[in-house]
Design a protein around this nucleic acid. Structure first.
Lengths: 356, 356
DNA sequence: AGATTCACTTATAACGATTTAGATTGTATA
DNA sequence: TATACAATCTAAATCGTTATAAGTGAATCT
């Protein structure tokens, strides 16, 4: 039912204070108590009488009191903001939206807001983080694309700012993170290609300065050893390479003397460029070459059959990261808030192939 | 007796004030002026002497003064926040990230932050907007998926809250918007299919309750009339339909008695489902059926050749919407801040076809 | 009884910024 | 010589919240 929210204000104030949002003062007036008493009552301070507390809460609920963020923030420094620091290099295809959605899922129902703070490829990745900290603009920070010796991690740990990263580091600092097990992905990717009889494998890796480049490489190497397959150099491209360049590069590679018969691709978007290159070379995926790829949206299966696809659930990552940050804010030990997620493999045939 | 000694200490100690963020008080102390004088000087109030003003600004720059958002917000009500209200139904493939990026581009370099406020399909779309307004959480609001008689638009216009929408309404209210010309898209889509000799056309439309459904339908109808083509009922599906259902539906449709030889698709994601359905029916895109589709990312061309693809630049939309909102906040008339963007057509062949 | 404790509640003072009204000049006007 | 008047700057109050110190009874102790 509709609550007579503003009428009480109007009643006391006499004049038509139509817009006035209820504050602690409103409740104080209505209850005959002092403002600090109301404040403490609402946060269940032990030194407030039970019946007073209850009466205050009741009034607060009736008039729909919501604490003013600016007031709280000014007094306590608490912003009720979680910042997501986004690189503009972030894979466009779905990554960001899933991440935002995952974080939002956790934040809804809490007093926290999600603020998106971007930084461009040209700038220092540390800049937006430093800005957030120096202006005390967030209670917690989330970012991805971690590097082994990530300056952002050092900076935040040093200052004791709650944060969690999408991706691990090798800083030796016990910070909170969520990561996808890219090593497991790469191992399994190789094995799956080997199972199809592929022995000359190329890898489309992440950019070499990111931590998960090393995980991916390690897994790839381990897989090769385990399967007795060999690596074919792909060189000079990574998952951030624009699709058109990726296509051109793949085309050249597939028409060269030393072409691979299997490709492990670290990204869904990149895979599309690779396929284009393969087909431009007159070859057929699933016949001349097989691909095992990681994707973070759901399109890859829809595009070509015979793809070995591992899915990374980015919205899960978002949920994990957000709840980790909230718990760190609540005092939990970041070192205990680390999680890995594992590839879910699907063969495109499961969705009925588009062709073939 | 024991008073909080923060400032006094900082002043005396001088050197060790490492953590304290500079405030107006800091500048006041450094300049020997009063706090309000500093405040007015920094905002170029006319009643402050030119040399004072300059001296204050110099000090402010030197110590890196940035106004505290909470202080400003508490006193003035100005939040320096632009809220992007996101439906969880928002097409996942790239839409959101491009929109966020576009808005961020404009907001960077201003004191504004971007806050993302989601709402679930189950909830009322008005809820998050009402929340933002009632808690005075944003200076401006951006949202999409407008309906002809959009309650959010009515609500915001009524209250004079600055906002701009991705999509038009038929409320008769002169609000700011950015929209893609879906009518032009649909007309041209039909004509392009007709030019390929297609005469029996089906349409994958937006959800019928959204404004641009009507634009799309109008354009489709006009195109049909102009080309002398006929419509084949597609029925029961729209661009928000899950890909698997879309595929199944298309499959049924393509194996039925009354199958279309051309499809106009209102979304990039949907198109992928359609293609899957077509090929599952044993038909070939470009031979048995042609497709003209709208996309908001860049993948469609990479997936199949012979597609007529119109691109909608979502990050442009974001930039337009953000700058419109900023200008409305600055007092400009929303009625003058309306813009349309037009389809950029590409035939996949321009990117060299993947097959064929 | 008088002192002490307990259980609550109120008063005061911040946080950082801005707004309004006043104070202090020096100068020009009557 | 006053008076008026800009031109500048300062004082005080305020936004909503909370931390800290100080009060107020009534009940308990010595």
């Amino acid at each position: 039912m509709a609550l007579p929210v503003r009428d009480k204000d109007a009643k006391r104030a006499g004049s038509g204070s139509r817009d006035a949002r209820p504050t602690l003062k409103t409740i104080a007036r209505l209850s005959g108590l002092a403002v600090p008493t109301v404040s403490r009552a609402l946060k269940n301070a032990p030194d407030i009488g039970a019946k007073t507390r209850q009466r205050v809460r009741q009034i607060a609920d009736e008039i729909g009191y919501v604490p003013d963020r600016a007031g709280v923030r000014l007094r306590t420094g608490k912003t009720n903001v979680i910042a997501l620091v986004l690189s503009t290099e972030e894979e466009v295809m779905g990554q960001t939206s899933h991440m935002v959605r995952g974080i939002s899922d956790v934040l809804s129902g809490t007093p926290y807001h999600l603020v998106v703070t971007p930084y461009s490829r040209t700038g220092d990745a540390l800049d937006p983080v430093r800005y957030l900290v120096e202006t005390a603009s967030a209670d917690g920070i989330i970012f991805s694309r971690t590097e082994p010796n990530d300056p952002r991690v050092r900076y935040l740990v040093e200052r004791g700012v709650p944060f969690s990263t999408h991706g691990r580091t090798e800083t030796g600092l016990a910070h909170s993170f969520h990561d996808f097990d890219n090593e497991a992905f790469a191992v399994e990717a190789v094995l799956r290609l080997a199972a199809k009889g592929r022995t000359r494998l190329a890898l489309l890796p992440p950019p070499p300065w990111l931590t998960y480049y090393h995980h991916t490489m390690a897994g790839f190497a381990r897989g090769l050893a385990q399967a007795g397959a060999m690596e074919v150099e792909y060189g000079g491209v990574d998952v951030d390479t624009p699709l058109s360049m990726l296509k051109a590069h793949t085309h050249k590679c597939m028409t060269g003397p030393d072409r691979p018969d299997g490709i492990v691709s670290g990204s869904g978007g990149g895979t599309i460029g690779i396929i284009a290159g393969i087909e431009a070379a007159g070859l057929v995926v699933g016949r001349d070459v097989d691909i095992a790829a990681k994707q973070s949206s759901e399109i890859l299966q829809w595009i070509r059959p015979n793809l070995e696809v591992a899915s990374e659930d980015i919205s899960l990552a978002g949920r994990d990261l957000a709840s980790a940050v909230l718990r760190i804010i609540d005092g939990e030990d970041p070192a205990t808030l680390q999680s890995l997620s594992y590839p879910r493999w699907t063969t495109a045939d499961a969705h009925e192939p588009l062709q073939g």
